[in-house]
Design a protein around this nucleic acid. Structure first.
Length: 311
DNA sequence: CTCGATCCCTGGACGC
DNA sequence: TGCGTCCAGGGATCGA
């Protein structure tokens, strides 16, 4: 699942691969995850990809103003614009030779002037693509929280300690911090020895200081290792990342804590599976973990708290 | 303000 | 082998 390190990895790959290329034409498959599909077809052809940036979990393809042709641009194409791309859960963005057959869930193909196609593939279509001119773009970006890699200790503490929500929910909230998802939230909480269900307002200044430092270290190391490939993350070169080998909490239910050997537990916090060490990260009063799955039959029963029934 | 529930969507894991 | 069921989860949205 692409979070900040995975998106950064893809953006870096694309920077080398497609900056400077001109978009020749656009072809679309399913478009229910695109803000305004017609805008892509109308405004992308003729523009050059000037830069690829990352903003939280978003990628930004900065586009030149449309080339001055004989025809006067009557539709705003004289101004620079951007293609905003969110990879959701399963999105991939990578160039391929145009002659190469398209994968099953390829929904956007941008033919480039060097004969390749920049393709967006997304089985679950939890991603998002939008063509945005400067104003709508700055509004989008303004709604995002602080960059976790840049945020100061004071700012981080202010954004966390003023809130009554659980720390896990705050870390996942893109209007608090941009770019953190389930994996790096759990990993940094494990490193900082803070239980995910604790309330932001109950954390000490020392604890938020530790959490910020560990979060930054985790993100930086994950970027260096080109992200985590859990199910199907691949970068712009089609290569998996390496950071999943360094996970200490995420996905390790029942396995022993690498600090204290206690079995890692799983609980639902902010509606998401959350992995933690019950000894290193003492839970707040009233918090109950999910029962450990029996070793043989993996996970069969639920009996947690809130989701015993489903239609 | 914060919460849980629900929806979106599909592939993969699992039980039988 | 194959079918049914559950589950993953980022984000939007709605009601409590």
């Amino acid at each position: 699942m692409p979070e900040l390190p995975e998106v950064e990895t893809v953006a870096r790959g694309l920077r080398h691969a497609i900056v400077g290329r001109r978009i020749v034409s656009v072809s679309l498959g399913k478009t229910d995850f695109i803000d305004d599909p017609v805008a892509l077809e109308e405004h992308l052809p003729g523009r050059t990809i000037d830069a690829v940036e990352r903003f939280g979990k978003f990628m930004l393809l900065r586009l030149s103003a449309a080339a001055a042709t004989g025809r006067a641009p009557s539709n705003g194409d004289a101004s620079p614009a951007s293609l905003l791309v969110h990879l959701g859960m399963t999105g991939q963005l990578a160039p391929s030779p145009a002659a190469q057959p398209r994968g099953k869930h390829t929904h956007v193909c941008l033919l480039l002037d060097d004969g390749r196609e920049l393709r967006y593939t997304d089985a679950r279509r939890f991603g998002r693509i939008a063509y945005l001119t400067e104003n709508p773009l700055s509004q989008e970006l303004a709604a995002q929280g602080a960059d976790p890699l840049e945020v100061t200790k004071e700012e981080f503490a202010r954004r966390i300690r003023s809130r009554r929500a659980r720390i896990k929910a705050l870390l996942l909230d893109q209007s608090v911090l941009r770019g953190v998802g389930n994996i790096y939230a759990d990993e940094s909480l494990w490193k900082a020895k803070i239980h995910p269900a604790r309330l932001g307002a109950k954390l000490s200044a020392v604890e938020t200081g530790t959490l910020r430092r560990e979060l930054q270290k985790v993100l930086q190391k994950a970027i260096a290792l080109r992200g985590s490939s859990i199910s199907d993350f691949l970068d712009a070169e089609g290569e998996p990342g390496e950071y999943q080998r360094h996970h200490r909490a995420y996905g390790r239910e029942g396995k022993s804590c690498l600090r204290c050997k206690t079995a890692i537990r799983r609980g639902i916090v902010a509606g998401r599976s959350s992995y933690y060490c019950p000894k290193c990260q003492p839970p707040p009063r009233g918090f109950s973990a999910l029962p450990l799955p029996s070793s043989k039959k993996k996970k069969t029963k639920r009996r947690g708290t809130e989701d015993a029934e489903k239609k």
